[in-house]
């Protein structure tokens, strides 16, 4: 089980609801992923304060918890307003907090993020902040009261996988009691497995599944990868070393084979 604030989930895969060829495919993919927490966009589908009722009921049919997302917000004020709108629309205090600094790379504005997180936590939100892999920023978010931190693997939608592995490892090491989720940049199941092997509690992704040739099959592949990565982490991975270490005894091997 993995804890997100006061909630426990058994799935370690969080998945987005955008970009699928159709809502039917989205439903099948989410079922195949076994995800229990799905992100929903607040901004696009809620123009004029109306949600796409039919689309929303298709998500509700899945019986999963929703994590509304402030995607596309560029300022603290905008993100806070969007979070409050989301709480009313979706009836949940969960909020995936995104404050975007740069339109080109969709890099998080970490300073605005910390500020918005402080405001929203005080207001009773369970904040899931999307941030960079910077330890100082993560520490500030924890100080603000965040119990979940979601650093990127690589820029949103880039499918590049974990770019700064050392920094992600350091975060895990220094924030042992915080739920850590790798969010954004995951392109392949192996990237997701790698995050879980590093001891991350979960991964969050959307494009890698939604834009696959077969989203349902890809969702299943991610489910398996996340399970494998977590199982490997729990089993205890061996430490890489510089030289070969034989797995069978070398005694009895002729010296001309044992020597290199």
């Amino acid at each position: 089980m993995v804890a997100f604030y006061n909630e426990q989930f058994s799935s370690r895969l969080l998945i987005g609801t955008a970009l699928y060829p159709s809502p039917a495919v989205m439903q099948q993919a989410i079922r195949a992923s076994a995800a229990e927490l799905v992100t929903v966009s607040v901004r696009r589908e809620t123009a004029g304060g109306k949600t796409g009722d039919a689309f929303w009921s298709l998500i509700r049919e899945l019986g999963v918890a929703v994590l509304p997302n402030t995607a596309g917000c560029h300022s603290v004020r905008e993100a806070v307003t969007t979070a409050k709108l989301a709480r009313e629309l979706f009836g949940t205090s969960r909020i995936k907090l995104e404050v975007i600094a740069d339109q080109e790379t969709l890099q998080p504005d970490v300073i605005g993020l910390v500020e918005a997180a402080q405001i929203l936590i005080k207001d009773g939100f369970d904040v899931y902040p999307y941030c960079t892999e910077d330890l100082g920023v993560a520490q500030r978010l924890v100080d603000a009261g965040c119990r979940v931190i979601m650093p990127w693997a690589a820029p949103i939608g880039s499918a590049r996988g974990i770019v700064n592995r050392d920094a992600l490892k350091l975060l895990r090491q220094r924030l042992p009691d915080i739920t850590l989720v790798v969010d954004a940049g995951i392109g392949a199941p192996s990237h997701a497995a790698e995050a879980l092997e590093l001891g991350y509690d979960a991964v969050l992704l959307n494009t890698a599944v939604a834009k696959a040739d077969d989203p349902v099959a890809m969702a299943n592949a991610f489910r398996l990868a996340v399970d494998a990565g977590r199982a490997a982490f729990e089993a205890g991975l061996m430490t890489p070393r510089d030289f070969a270490s034989p797995s069978t005894p070398v005694i009895g091997t002729p010296f001309w084979h044992a020597a290199s």
């Binding site: 809502p23 696009r44 589908e45 123009a47 004029g48 949600t51 796409g52 039919a54």
Partner: peptide, 10 residues
């Protein structure tokens, strides 16, 4: 292509 039954233009 937006999932909504609001027919305004944003």
């Amino acid at each position: 292509t937006i999932e909504t039954d609001d027919d305004g233009v944003s």
